[in-house]
Design a protein around this nucleic acid. Structure first.
Length: 592
RNA sequence: GGGGUCGUAGUUAAGUCGGUUAUAACGCCGGCCUGUCACGCCGGAGGCCGUGGGUUCGAGUCCCAUCGACCCCGCCA
């Protein structure tokens, strides 16, 4: 067997060759993507990270290589020395990037053999995720995932270059940190040298980055792993990556401007897509009223109308009761009601029921008036008022949701709106729709905790003019917080922080945290605020979600090289796993 | 914590009302083939029907439990 390759250097990537390379002598290394053995003539599609190219083995061009080529199988690793041949016109494969050329193999070496893979790597077959995750290293050979991972690298590189240019300093913060109350469940790490104590893996570097502002670094950023021990979703992993930043002496508008520039730069540099700035802004209240949620997908309209005042007067008990008990009645109007059959309408209840709504009431708007389940409860005057508010015209369909809880109505219609947008094909997947959501409420009342909780986090600055309401009506206090929403996903969020220790203490008090608890958990931080803390604020982006949208991926797992399952396990390495009693002893741990 | 979808050759799926030897495609193995590119043609091997229990003369199919993957609600400051 010829061992020429051990001496030779690779000259090109398979996928980067084209007609301009014609007649060149090349050395390629890659995996056998597919072979077509015609007996006297053998074709192999050789694959590397840049793509595939056709290798031709014929007895004339390379007798030894041709003889050896009969034995190769899928996923073998080959080194090929050959000549780039311009294909005759009738043999050009237009569906292949390298389809104008092929490589006539003069020498070939099998660098390694391979077992038959447990699934075909052609990207055509839908393989169960179970198997893909177990053999993730093979899944990662597939073009689709490989492209996503390479896009991710490009995005982080462009992010760094933009932020460095803007004067940001990359500073690492600890992974072994202190467990904090509030927020998500922590991943804990036992300390061997301090028996009975634990570190927590950070949910975000929040406190550290604020301390860096106290230290005077002025502009900080980090592309950093964060950890949250909560139940997972299609867009949530237990460990995920944030683009994290913090700035001193700035206002909301400064941060928003920098981020808009960053997004424009990333999309231009990575996807060659121009992004229109500035991005539109919506207050939280407006987002909930018009779209039912604080992460509205504004690639389509289909807005929600508030009909509480009108429908609340009707004789329909569900409506009148909702209105009387502080709830609301809201509706979405569909212009072309014919697209929905009676059966379709009956099915809508399933869309809203997970959000607590009892059902969806509907009427069809005709030339002569209304028909449908609740039409008889509305008189002509009410009908005209509804038409005015919803813009409904003959042929339209009005879908109502009513509940004694306004939050249930909003969440239900928010979900219904998305369902309808999808079903009616209103969502243009090529569109990029950025929106800032501002003026979040500072606190939300938690039924389970029986107290107010920070909507964003407890270091967020309240809007100053709302401060007097801190004790009288905490739910009405607005925060100087902002989220960036892209195509219905929250991709980032941040706030102007509290930089005065007395205000910070007031917030802890409003959150119902005991003085001693605050002292134990945040004492060092409150101290720091008293040593000349500049006004500051920041933002953090979910890198994984951003890449998902940029790549058009349906799952966060498609943009992470080694993701975990919904139960936070790794099917490939089988983490987490049990450890030896010796290890437990060292850590002073007993397992129940 | 709650609700849902799924689990049958290596892979993806079909499997009727519970009834003979569990199908197909792709992949795999062998043979033929000098212009294929999802090559083609001929032949072949390959099954713990996720696991455990139950009902039944008889279970891939019905019931219960359990494991796993996925989706949603809660949760995720």
């Amino acid at each position: 067997m010829s061992e020429f390759i051990t001496e030779a250097k690779r000259t090109h990537y398979c996928g980067s060759l084209n007609a301009e390379d014609a007649h060149k002598q090349v050395v390629l290394m890659g995996w056998v993507h597919r072979r077509r053995d015609l007996g006297g003539l053998i074709f192999v599609d050789l694959r590397d990270r840049e793509g595939t190219v056709q290798i031709v083995f014929d007895p004339e061009g390379g007798p030894r290589a041709h003889a050896l080529a009969h034995s190769i199988r899928n996923e073998f690793v080959l080194a090929i020395k050959g000549r780039v041949n311009l294909r005759p016109a009738e043999m050009v494969n237009a569906s292949l990037k390298t389809g104008e050329i092929e490589i006539i193999a003069e020498e070939m070496e099998i660098l390694n053999e391979a077992n038959t893979p447990p699934f075909v790597l052609d990207g055509e077959t839908d393989v169960s995720e179970n198997l893909l995750l177990k053999y993730r290293y093979l899944d990662l050979r597939r073009r689709k995932i490989q492209k996503n991972i390479m896009l991710r690298s490009k995005v982080t590189a462009e992010t760094r270059s933009y932020l460095e240019k803007e004067g940001f300093i990359d500073i690492e913060t600890p992974f072994l940190a202190k467990s904090t109350p509030e927020g998500a469940r922590d991943y804990l790490v036992p300390s061997r040298v301090n028996p009975g104590t634990f570190y927590a893996l950070p949910q975000s570097p929040q406190i550290f980055k604020q301390l860096l502002m106290v230290s005077g670094f002025d502009r900080y950023y980090q592309i950093v792993k964060c950890f949250r021990d909560e139940d997972l979703r299609a867009d949530r992993q237990p460990e995920f990556t944030q683009i994290d930043m913090e700035l001193s002496f700035i206002s909301e508008d400064d941060i928003i401007g920098i981020i808009e520039g960053m997004m424009a730069h990333i999309f231009d540099a990575c996807l060659d897509r121009k992004v229109q700035t500035p991005f539109p802004r919506l207050t939280y209240r407006e987002a909930i009223n018009r779209y039912g949620r604080d992460n509205p997908d504004r690639r389509f309209a289909l807005e929600i109308a508030d009909l509480t005042d009108i429908a609340g007067q009707s004789d329909f008990r569900v409506f009148s009761e909702a209105a009387q008990k502080g709830g609301s009645i809201k509706a979405i109007t569909i212009e072309d009601g014919k697209a929905f059959s009676r059966k379709d309408l009956d099915g809508l209840g399933e869309i809203v029921s997970p959000y607590g709504a009892k059902g969806v009431a509907w009427v069809r708007v005709g030339e002569e008036g209304w028909s449908g389940s609740v039409s008889k409860f509305f008189n002509n005057e009410a009908i005209n008022q509804v038409h005015e508010k919803t813009g409904a015209r003959p042929g339209a369909l009005i879908l109502f949701v009513a509940d004694t809880s306004p939050a249930v109505v909003s969440a239900s219609l928010g979900a219904l709106r998305l369902y309808l947008g999808n079903r009616m094909g209103l969502i243009d997947s090529d569109k990029l729709s950025f929106t800032w959501i501002t003026e979040f409420p500072m606190f939300e009342y938690s039924e389970t905790e029986g107290r107010y909780m920070a909507t964003h986090h407890p270091f967020t600055s309240p809007v100053l003019e709302d401060l007097p309401m801190l004790e009288t009506d905490p739910g009405a206090v607005r925060a100087r917080a902002y989220d960036l929403v892209l195509n219905g996903s929250e991709i980032g969020g941040g706030s102007i922080r509290i930089h005065k220790s007395d205000v910070q203490s007031m917030i802890f008090k409003a959150l119902g945290l005991e003085k001693e608890e605050v002292r134990t958990k945040f004492g060092f931080f409150l101290d720091a605020l008293q040593y000349g803390t500049p006004p500051h604020g920041g933002i953090a982006f979910g890198l994984d979600r951003l890449i998902m949208i940029m790549a058009g991926a349906e799952s966060i797992r498609d943009v992470i090289a080694f993701p975990k399952t919904l139960k936070a396990t790794c099917l490939m390495s089988e983490a987490p796993s049990e450890v030896s009693t010796g290890q437990l002893d060292e850590l002073h741990l007993n397992i129940k």
